[in-house]
Simulated scan of single mutants.
Amino acid sequence: MSRAIGLLLGFAADRVLGDPRRFHPVAGFGRTAAGLERQLYADSRLAGTAHTAVLVGTTTVLGVALERLTRKHPILHTAVTAAATWTVLGARSLEREAETMAELLEEKDIPGARDRLSHLCARDATELESDELARATVESIAENTSDACVAPLLWGVFGVPGLLGYRAVNTLDAMVGYKSPKYQNFGWASARLDDVLNLVPARVCAVLTGVVAGRPREALAVSRRDAPKHPSPNAGPVEAAFAGALGLTLGGTNSYGSCAEDRGTLGDGPAPAVDDIRRTAALARRVGIAAAGLAALAALLREAQGAIHSRRKGKRWG
């Protein structure tokens, strides 16, 4: 039970403490990745693949070592799993950013909200007004509920290597996985690997969103119908499910500096307003709790299956 308990304790630590203000391991990984990028960068997929392979491989190997060193010591294994889970989750920090954006917009502080939006997403907020800032916030909460909470918890079913490996990939995607002239080729490997690792978690997140909102049919109907309009194979299902669950219409054209991206129209209701930010954050919180319970249950079942297999193997040899 150590893995399941560790996942739940790590989730609880994130809910109570959020990200550490200083010396965050993910921030340290980001600095290491940036340093290696300066050494390896070239406008080619090969260079980007090498960059991804070194960083993700090293991080995953560290996770394997921690798993093997602690697997015969349940209390230590629980503690290591909890620490790794807390490290890779970002749900509480996401909620805090949502609360900050809601407060700024409620106070009509549009310049402050424009500046703060960069903490949630990379879109250009220079000319965004209150309604567009609210839409950007709601969409970012939805997408990051999967990336920063549901996906790492589900990869945690596979232990510390799954937790650390997933976060390494997702962090690299956030750093270099852009369709900009600089990263179109170099960031290709990180972006594609992130897409693969999020295929299942994003769809689980979409289902959980509908279930915990009490609108499973609406959420899944909108997700099935509108997700293909979104350019991301994983953000699409999640954002569309949130749109259906909240009764909103999300999507539109977003500006990312020199690039504009049409994200389609997701949902049937009104466009998000400032009041919808707190509703979205509350829904994201419930999705995270459900995902933590699901991950713990899956970890228990996986360990039970492994124990049964080991006993059967022992009997054959005996």
Results as ranks from 00 to 15, higher is better:
Arg38Leu: 14
Leu62Gln: 01
Gly10Trp: 03
His77Phe: 07
Tyr183Arg: 12
Pro152Ile: 00
Leu55Glu: 09
Arg225Leu: 10
Ser258Asn: 08
Ala241Leu: 03
Ser310Glu: 15
Ala189Phe: 14
Gly10Asp: 04
Gly264Ser: 11
Ala50Pro: 00
Ala189Arg: 03
Arg286Met: 04
Thr81Asp: 02
Glu139Lys: 06
Arg285Tyr: 04
Gln39Arg: 15
Ile308Trp: 13
Ile277Pro: 04
Leu69Glu: 01
Tyr166Met: 04
Gly10Thr: 01
Tyr166Cys: 05
Ile289Asn: 03
Pro181Arg: 01
Arg312Ser: 11
Met175Asn: 09
Asp173Ala: 05
Asp124Tyr: 03
Gln184Glu: 14
Arg135Trp: 05
Arg286Phe: 03
Arg22Trp: 11
Leu104Cys: 11
Ala134Gln: 09
Thr265Phe: 08
Met101Trp: 11
Ala189His: 11
Val138Arg: 01
Thr87Asp: 06
Ala213Ser: 15
Ser140Phe: 04
Val274Met: 08
Ala290Glu: 04
Pro201Leu: 11
Ala12Asn: 08
Ala291Val: 08
Tyr178Gly: 05
Trp317Ile: 13
Arg116Thr: 01
Ala65His: 01
Arg302Glu: 12
Pro111Trp: 10
Arg21Asp: 10
Gly165Tyr: 08
Asp268Ile: 12
Pro25His: 09
His119Phe: 05
Gly214Val: 09
Thr59Glu: 01
Glu132Trp: 06
Val222Ala: 15
Ala91Glu: 13
Asp262Ser: 12
Ser44Gln: 07
Val157Ile: 15
Leu94Phe: 07
Gly247Glu: 04
Ala245Val: 02
Arg15Gln: 14
Ala290His: 05
Arg302Gln: 14
Glu107Ile: 00
Glu129Trp: 06
Leu128Ser: 13
Tyr256Thr: 03
Glu139Phe: 08
Val54Met: 14
Ile110Asp: 01
Leu208Arg: 06
Gly112Glu: 02
Lys182Cys: 08
Thr249Cys: 04
Ala102Gly: 07
Ser93Leu: 10
Leu128Gln: 10
Gly314Phe: 10
Val212Met: 02
Val88Lys: 05
Val176Gln: 06
Ala295Gly: 10
Leu294Tyr: 06
Asp131Cys: 05
Ala290Gln: 04
Arg45Ile: 06
Gly318Arg: 15
Phe242Val: 14
Arg279His: 12
Ser44Tyr: 05
Ala4Val: 08
Gly269Ala: 02
Leu300Gly: 05
Gly293Glu: 06
Leu105Asn: 04
Leu40Gln: 03
Arg92Thr: 10
Arg192Asp: 02
Val61Glu: 00
Ala168Met: 07
Arg96Gln: 14
Leu120Ser: 11
Gly57Pro: 09
Ser2Leu: 02
Thr171Val: 13
Gly57Ile: 12
Val56Met: 09
Asp226Thr: 05
Thr145Asp: 05
Arg15Glu: 14
Leu128Gly: 04
Thr280Leu: 12
Ala174Lys: 01
Gly288His: 02
Pro152Val: 02
Asp195Ile: 04
Ser93Arg: 13
Val176Leu: 12
Arg22Met: 02
Glu218Arg: 14
Gly306Met: 14
Thr81Trp: 01
Leu104Tyr: 03
Asp124Val: 03
Leu246Thr: 11
His73Tyr: 05
Glu139Ile: 10
Pro201Ser: 08
Glu99Lys: 13
Thr85Met: 07
Gly247Pro: 04
Asp115Ser: 13
Ile289Val: 15
Tyr183Met: 13
Met1Tyr: 13
Lys108Ile: 00
Gly252Ala: 12
Ala148Pro: 03
Ala168His: 11
Ala219Pro: 03
Arg21Val: 13
Gly244Phe: 10
Leu283Val: 10
Leu301Gln: 10
Gly90Leu: 01
Pro25Arg: 06
